[in-house]
Amino acid sequence: MPTTQVEGIAISPLLWRYFVKPLTEKSEREVANLEDDDFVVRTVMKINSEIDGAYVFSSGKNMGAFKGVGNPGEIARFFKIEEYDGYIWTGHTRFPTNTPGWWGGAHPFTLLDWSIVHNGEISSYGINKRYLEMYGYKLTLLTDTEVVTYLFDLLVRRHGLDIETACTALAAPFWKNIDDMPNDEKEEMTALRMIYGSALMNGPFSILFGHSKGLVGFNDRIKLRPLVAATKGKTVYMASEESAIREICSSPEKVWSPRAGEPVIVELEI
């Protein structure tokens, strides 16, 4: 992986980037009748959980993750980020809360073309993790944010929910609101909460979910973390604080704070 020496980043892991095509004739793949994506996910889990010291941080076709321990400018220069073009960018820096910073534990957390950056903490991590483990996900990165990426992978790619429904499952409306909904919607929401109760993400969060076709920003159900969205022309900006948006877009046309649990879903215009 192309990197450059940066003052301030004294040590870094050995970073390798491979362009691979999943083998079709792998016996384990044929037995389980795995699609390419399933096979990639399974291989990522296998490497991360079974090979000591080796981690796959990025496994997308149309998505790349650049992450590490250092301040964001240093990391960007280290990865020579100016050499890449992209139509969606997410960035993140954090004060390591519950775990000391390490290269694997930095945001984003990615799988296939899904990427998550997260401000906050998933207090329901314990049950979210056990729920995902039932579906073969192995949680190895020692941090709560990892579950968000895998939950989107499970709900959207494997269960076929649309992104809005998936967001609704993860930050579900309260029963008192569901009880007042029209019958069809009530039935739908009740079923969603019953089936995806273990996927409900509880605790403070604002999350940006990037994928090859768009960007989603959303909050926990009682908005314990801030989220601000803004637009200018055809560009959408989202951040925890408005100041971050104004840093790169000094005069947005529209700025708003989404309501708790209501996702801001941006689709790429093709």
């Binding site: 329901s124 314990g126 993790k129 056990r130 409900l200 509880n202």
Partner: peptide, 16 residues
């Protein structure tokens, strides 16, 4: 106290 607001976030959460 656990920072969650639905019983399903406690159910099976042995981490807590």
């Amino acid at each position: 106290a656990l920072g969650v607001n639905a019983i399903e976030s406690l159910r099976g959460s042995r981490e807590r």
